[in-house]
Design a protein around this nucleic acid. Structure first.
Length: 672
DNA sequence: AGACCCAGGTTTTTT
DNA sequence: ACCTGGGTCT
């Protein structure tokens, strides 16, 4: 039987409450993941069938971790039947089975962010929206926002008096029509169309409600309207829905997360049991008090007060440097000193910053000081042009209606299909509404083209047909991918696309690496891996986890943005660039979003287990100019008695006799 | 088709 | 300062 003894009373209550709506307010470091996994284990032990449980997370990483911990906790249960997945992959699975109800086919492809942007530009062109007016980002965000908030184009038109409303609505409609013609769903659609499906087809919904009788949602503060509505719909009359999250760590409002989901949950589900986890197992009380004091300024939050049994701990220290270079050098010196006098390794330390551009001077200073480091979230392998091209080739074979993929690779490498021919095809596409690849099979269309171009198009089309046949049989996926890219002259063409010999070779190596990743995927899944599965994994899986080279992660200092640090912890945390307009960011100040920025600061502070050091540069270079800076308001918001503002030298002053004794006694106990 | 030039934009990031 | 994308010229 499951032993809950080492859980605290609130955690136990959360675990035992399996029926009805439950809101678990899990403050930073309060053992949330344990609670979730124990709760699932508890349900399984109490007769709930694994296939009746749905656990939803935001990231694959979180889903993997949960699955892993469940496996350890309950090795005997058949975990394959239990749905632990991200919102997107869950919805994708539903749609693969049901999407025909909505007029797509189950071979639908997934449009990524750059497809979305490209298509929106195209639609803007169609509508004759000139550049001077509203820009691509406006429409991209506008459409995404509308989708996330369940606004139809009709509603945009009628609800908003803004002069751009009608334009946005029309663009949304056209954009969506294009996607549908190409049998593509964008990321937002995966969620939205699943919700539409359920709302429009009660019988389908009933099947899913019957299957998923117990629902668990992690990081609920990050859900948007569609996501909360999806879960509410699925929970139905049973209302067995448990959401876990921390409103104080809601830092994704800017991309559609709606904090009111977690704030209003008890009002939306009458009779909600609320369990607040306040015992923190991570940090010293100085850190918790400081964080709590700051976050208390925010209105509209669920009250909570974190505490721990780890003692008071050292005060927070704030240092100032003249400029960003010296700030970076200061941090490097401090790290050297700390590793020297304490027993902490580089892996115990992380440098947190608000914006990515701040990494530069730190890379330099750490390298100069011979300190190993790793940067989280550096630009990814899969963003590279040659990889996206390779993926576009694959997408086209899988979904021949994917004009976006086709146009990307039709003349990559150059094969004599110029702008003229491409325009021509687009024209036909507009008139007939048929996929371009299909048009390329029509001699009526081809006779309009230059003979050379027509021949090239014919050749491309027939190679695509061959590939489609090849991939329709199961097995040998990586091999087939290699053969296909080769047959399209893509591998050979890389040398022509990229001028320098070196660059061509490097790009080719990357593509080969990509083929290898397909082989790895195949090895993991087994011989039954299909192109569709691989593409789906590619679209819905985060880059960093696809290639795992975590070997160095343990040994180096970690550099990462505060956003990327959510969910992590380190004994030593350095928050750098504590300047007004940088953190909080100036954009958030203009937009009255300082509350979210304050939550971001709260997240940063609560990453620290033992020691928190913050720095500021008095001057900072921005683009090509230097500016004087002001200290961040968040520093002023910290409780005075918990913060010290030492001079830089004080950090490096010789150790006192007591400290020396201390170090030696620690060493003695360690080696005795 | 490919080299070259200029304008615009540079918070955070998942799926 | 620096990169990207789009436009133009050869």
């Amino acid at each position: 039987m499951l032993n809950l003894d080492h859980l605290n009373p609130q955690q136990q209550e959360a675990v035992r409450t399996t029926e009805g709506p439950l809101l678990v307010l899990a403050g930073a470091g309060t053992g949330k993941t344990s609670v979730i996994t124990y709760r699932v284990a508890w349900m399984l032990n109490h007769g709930v069938a694994p296939e009746n449980i749905l656990a939803v997370t935001f990231t694959n990483k979180a889903a993997d971790e949960m699955r892993e911990r469940l496996k350890n906790l309950l090795p005997q249960v058949d975990h394959k039947t239990m749905a632990v997945s991200t919102f997107h992959s869950f919805c994708c699975r539903v749609l693969r089975a049901e999407v025909h109800h909505l007029g797509y086919t189950r071979r639908f492809g997934i449009a990524d962010a750059s497809d979305t942007e490209g298509l929106i530009k195209q639609v803007m062109g169609e509508m004759g929206i000139s550049k001077g007016d509203l820009d691509v980002n406006f429409f991209k965000n506008g459409v995404s926002h509308a989708k996330n908030n369940l606004q139809t184009p009709e509603e945009i038109r009628s609800n908003s008096k803004r002069d751009w409303a009608a334009t946005l609505a029309e663009l949304y409609e056209r954009y969506q029509r294009h996607l549908r013609n190409m049998n593509l769903l964008d990321f937002d659609d995966l969620l939205l169309q699943t919700l539409n499906l359920w709302k429009q087809h009660g019988d389908v919904l009933a099947r899913y409600q019957d299957r998923y009788q117990y629902i668990l949602v992690d990081e609920y503060q990050d859900t948007n309207k569609v996501q909360s509505e999806l879960m509410r719909t699925l929970a139905g009359e049973r209302r067995n829905i448990c959401v876990v999250g921390d409103d104080d760590q809601s830092i994704y409002g800017w991309r559609g997360a709606d904090i009111t989901n977690i704030l209003e949950f008890p009002n939306i589900f009458e009779g909600t049991r609320v369990v607040t986890l306040e015992q923190n197992y991570r940090s010293t009380n100085v850190i918790l008090k400081a964080a709590g004091h700051v976050i208390n300024r925010n209105e509209s939050r669920h009250a909570k007060q974190l505490w721990s049994t780890r003692g008071e701990g050292d005060p927070i220290r704030v240092f100032e440097a003249d400029n960003e270079t010296e700030e970076a050098q200061l941090i490097a010196r401090m790290i050297t000193q700390l590793t020297y006098e304490q027993r902490s390794g580089h892996g115990d330390m992380a440098i947190l910053f608000r914006s990515n551009f701040q990494t530069r001077p730190f890379e330099q200073s750490l390298r100069d000081a011979n300190i190993p480091y790793c940067i989280v979230g550096a630009k990814s392998f899969y963003e590279r042009r040659e990889i996206k091209d390779a993926v576009a080739y694959l997408r086209l074979v899988h979904n021949p209606r994917d004009d976006l993929a086709l146009l990307r690779v039709l003349n990559t490498p150059p094969r004599g299909i110029g702008d003229k021919s491409i325009d021509n095809l687009k024209q036909y596409q507009q008139i007939t509404g048929k996929p371009i690849l299909e048009l390329m099979h029509s001699e009526d269309v081809l006779k309009d083209m230059q003979p050379a171009a027509a021949e090239s198009l014919r050749c491309f089309a027939s190679a695509s047909d061959d590939a489609a046949k090849t991939f329709s049989e199961v097995g040998g996926l990586a091999e087939k991918i290699h053969g296909y890219l080769d047959s399209m002259a893509y591998l050979e063409g890389l040398g022509r696309i990229y001028k320098g010999h070196e660059e061509g070779v490097a790009r080719l190596e990357n593509v080969i690496e990509f083929v290898n990743s397909a082989a790895q995927y195949e090895a993991r899944i087994g011989g039954t891996a299909t192109l569709q599965m691989f593409l789906e994994a590619f679209s819905l899986t985060d880059d960093s986890e696809r290639i795992d080279d975590q070997s160095e992660e343990d040994t180096g200092v970690t550099l990462l943005t505060v956003h990327a640090a959510k969910g992590l912890e380190f004994p030593y945390i350095f928050i750098v660039g504590m300047e007004q307009n940088l953190f909080p960011h100036e954009r958030s100040i203009q937009d009255y979003m300082v509350d979210e920025e304050r939550r971001l600061f709260y997240v940063a502070v609560t990453r620290a287990k033992n020691n928190l050091i913050m720095t500021r540069a008095r001057q900072r270079q921005k683009y090509d100019k230097r500016y004087p800076t002001r200290l961040s308001q968040f520093i002023h918001e910290l409780p005075k008695e918990l913060v010290e503002f030492p001079e830089v030298d004080e950090f490096f002053s010789p150790a006192t006799g007591n400290q020396v004794d201390d170090v030696f006694s620690q060493l003695r106990t360690r080696f005795s």
